[in-house]
């Protein structure tokens, strides 16, 4: 048996510091600048697009409502893939699993942001255009469901105890991803069996050529914005994971090496 005297030897799996190189920070900055330009141009396009026949200026809400609703269906997929990867990699590749979990929480949070905006703009538009805040038609009900699912995901994450968070959340993420298509189909069947008034004759069905460019610019703007905040939230989560690791290591080292401290 060898007794180690003198200073504690460094652990062989030293925790690597977060790679936050200059390159990625400046890339983020450039992307942010570009996003702001596209967003400004999109806003300009939205304001100068010709007035709509029935709704007048109110329809311009669509230029911001539509990108958010469309994009809020992309982030849940990221969450699903990330949750599955976490489950697969948890034992075999813990470092990659941690990255997967960071993507999962980032994409879930962005989903909640985008779907909240989609719901809010939709309700404001609906109230002004058709006199009602809400209708239980297929599209709106499914959308509300999407919002509820990912809000419940975020609540599970905040209620979970310490190191369990990633694990329980990944399971819920998989279930939520399975649930979304089932929800969509069953709600669609519900509403076609007993047809109810459909809001607005279908968004996107009557886009005039003159308005198409404004729609596309705003979709691009909010897609770029979504990528920006997704990446930032991911980086923030990685920093937090790193801080947690450091705290755990310090606690362990404090217990074991107290006579050498």
């Amino acid at each position: 048996m060898r007794f180690v005297t003198g200073p504690t030897p460094p652990p062989h799996d030293r925790i690597k510091p977060v790679k936050d190189s200059r390159k990625s920070t400046s890339l983020a900055g450039i992307w942010f600048g570009l996003t702001m330009l596209v967003m400004a141009y999109g806003f300009y396009q939205a304001m100068v697009a010709p007035k709509e026949a029935t709704m007048g200026n109110l329809y311009r809400v669509f230029f911001y409502h539509f990108p958010h609703t469309i994009l809020s269906f992309i982030f849940p997929y990221i969450n699903c893939v990330a949750s599955l990867l976490f489950i697969f990699w948890r034992q075999s590749k813990p470092e990659l699993a941690a990255k997967a979990d960071a993507w999962a929480v980032a994409s879930a949070e962005i989903t909640v942001v985008y779907s909240t905006v989609g719901l809010a703009t939709g309700m404001l538009w609906g109230r002004a255009a058709w006199g009602i805040w809400w209708a239980w038609d297929a599209r709106l009900t499914t959308y509300l469901l999407l919002w509820l699912l990912y809000v419940s995901y975020m609540m599970l994450r905040s209620f979970a105890a310490g190191g369990q968070t990633a694990m329980v959340a990944s399971v819920l993420g998989v279930f939520a991803a399975i649930d979304v298509p089932i929800c969509y189909m069953s709600i669609h069947w519900w509403r076609t069996q007993h047809p109810a008034p459909v809001f607005g004759g279908g968004d996107g069905s009557g886009i005039d050529k003159s308005m198409a460019s404004a729609v596309l610019w705003n979709v691009a703007a909010f897609l770029m914005w979504g990528i920006f905040i997704l990446g930032w939230r991911y980086a923030l989560e990685r920093r937090r994971q790193h801080q947690d690791n450091l705290a755990t290591e310090a606690m362990l080292r404090g217990d074991i090496g107290s006579e050498n401290a």
């Binding site: 911001y64 538009w125 002004a128």
Partner: peptide
Amino acid sequence: SERHLVYAYLVVWILQFGYAGWL
């Protein structure tokens, strides 16, 4: 109609830039 248009755009900016600010 005009008020709701303004509110809608404000809501988008407040939510998105507010979230970015929190970040």
